[in-house]
């Protein structure tokens, strides 16, 4: 803890240096025209404008964009988790499910979720559903992969222990295999949240009528680099906030997984 504090200035330094260089090339030396790289002050101004209810140039406030994006991301993510985790667990535990699902899954897994977008737009239009479906796909895949790997880590001797105590197959799954897998399952929840958020923003760049990705896209068309940077910043902050929240939950619920 003490060491962390001692070197905090290094982290502060890097942020200050980046801001300094940015200020230098814009306001001070004017190496970059402001329509390509606005000054930090201009970005802050745009941020405050959007935050306090400004609707130009994309027709909605920052809060509306954030709420659209979050709704889609969390909707698709939740569906991905609810389907993906049990599916991964079932595949790892039941040989027949594995044999049945694996070929399809292996074929679909390398397809980037974004490659689904054209087809999904054909099916669902550019509204809510198409994007939820993209997020669902990207979240589900990470959940399946991690839950599967987690269950496969179950030690044979633990299964024997449970068997000699007369535990049924289902009891062994729930009381031995899933606790073993829990840290991995949690890793899956985290990575899939990250990939869901990234897939969402990309999906909104392509097909959208609101949302953070849409805001960035509109800003590009209007030549508003300041809004683009505001959008990127907000996406970054929300992404790391979400992963931070999951980390905290993880510390609370996974700390016992420790040694094997």
């Amino acid at each position: 803890m003490k060491r962390k504090k001692k070197y905090l200035w290094l982290s502060v330094l890097s942020v200050c240096a980046a801001l300094g260089v940015w200020e230098l090339v814009t306001d001070i030396l004017q190496l970059m025209p402001s329509y390509m790289l606005p000054s930090p002050a201009a970005v802050v101004e745009a941020f405050i404008y959007k935050l306090t209810g400004g609707v130009n140039p994309d027709g909605a406030t920052l809060w509306q964009h954030i709420s659209t994006s979050l709704k889609i991301a969390l909707g698709g993510y939740t569906a991905g988790v609810v389907i993906g985790v049990p599916l991964g667990i079932a595949m790892a535990w039941y040989k027949k499910v594995d044999l049945f699902v694996k070929p399809l899954f292996d074929l679909l897994r390398p397809v980037p979720p974004l490659a689904w977008i054209p087809l999904l737009i054909l099916w669902f239009g550019i509204g809510y559903s198409a994007k939820v479906a993209v997020i669902f796909l990207s979240a589900m895949i990470a959940c399946v992969v991690n839950s599967y790997a987690g269950i496969k880590q179950t030690r044979q001797v633990h299964i024997w222990v449970a068997q000699t105590f007369g535990a049924s197959d289902l009891e062994i799954l729930f009381r031995v295999a899933i606790p073993t897998a829990w840290p991995m399952i949690f890793t899956g929840l985290k990575t899939s949240l990250g990939s869901a958020w990234m897939a969402l923003v990309a999906a909104e760049l392509l097909a959208s009528t609101s949302g953070l990705g849409y805001m960035i896209q509109m800003a590009r068309q209007m030549g508003r680099a300041d809004i683009i940077i505001v959008g990127m910043f907000v996406i970054g902050v929300i992404g790391s906030l979400m992963s931070g929240i999951l980390d905290l939950l993880g510390k609370k619920f996974v700390h016992r997984g420790g040694s094997k």
Binding site: R155, V157, H158, W160, F165, R256
Partner: peptide
């Protein structure tokens, strides 16, 4: 396997969680 025959294993086979 049945509960009437308990086993103590070579390496510790305790559930770490």
């Amino acid at each position: 396997p049945a509960p009437s025959r308990g086993v103590v294993y070579q390496t510790t086979a305790l559930f770490p969680w």
